[in-house]
Amino acid sequence: MDKNNLLKVSFAPHAHGGQSVSQIMLYVIVALLPAMLVGIWVFGPKALEITLTAVISCVLFEYFTQKFILKVKPTINDFSAAVTGVLLAFNLPSNIPLWMVVIGSFAAIVIAKMTYGGIGNNPFNPALVGRVFLLVSFPVAMTSWPKPFAYTVGGVDVITAATPLSILKEGVKNTEALTTIMAKMPSYLDLFIGIRGGCIGEISVLALILGGIYLLYKKIISWHIPVSMIFGILIFSGILWLTDPSKYADPFFHIMTGGVFLGAIFMATDMVTSPITPKGKLIFGSLIGILVILIRVFGAYPEGVSFAILIMNAFVPLIDRYTRPKRFGE
């Protein structure tokens, strides 16, 4: 009997459901496509350029770190580095220099992922670490956004527009009345479709919701984190708004602006850095929502989704520990 005819022996089960890590990551990339298309439509080819740069540099960083420094088999074929790249690019303004994107990818892959042992072991969302790294290193480049459709009239770097949230923050700082601030805002319809200043991937609520529905349908994410996070924002900002509507923005403004939907659907639901049980997910999501509003209303930064998610990432082991599933028969 030659070696190929020997009977294989292993433990049960001898069947597998068929879903693999690379498949999950591919579904996530597909779900991110509508938001990417809106980003390219609104910000022009520069958006595509940045996304490609981020993806390629993330994949290469992962490959080289694993091949030459850690000396393990590279895991780039699971597409997790590609997902990190897309998400990182989605969190950047479209006029950022490409070399900064490469630095961000370095922070995301090498610092936030590989130093902890690669996929599955990182406590913090790599793409968000990359973004925050860039935000504290290059605050100006990271907070000047081109106006929507500026590329069609030329001079991408020149015409910049503030995001709705920074308009709000500036206005509050200058003690303007809330009504005058709100008058400068894009309409809710524009916010929903994505015609506004902001990072590449965060602008279109519609496209992000489409991607989210796709992921829910494919059972890659569950509804717990996005829903609880958005409800957390709605309820907490709603309470503030009810106490003083002339001082605080209304809750719908809060969920429609900034990176709330990108964060809720794609960043907070990252499997590695979110709790495992439904109960834990609900706690995790709603606390992110509350933190987002705390940072936006009382903090120094106009936007707080990245920081809120990163802070809650640190609590995931604790949440997992106290939200064990109910064992059968106990």
């Binding site: 070696k3 020997l6 009977l7 294989k8 022996v9 292993s10 433990f11």
Partner: peptide, 22 residues
């Protein structure tokens, strides 16, 4: 000589628990 192919995590403990060995 090899008589079977063991196909799972490479630990003696597991094989011992599973069968007589390759």
């Amino acid at each position: 000589a090899q008589k079977n192919i063991y196909d799972s995590a490479e630990t003696c403990r597991l094989v011992h628990n599973l069968f007589r060995g390759e």
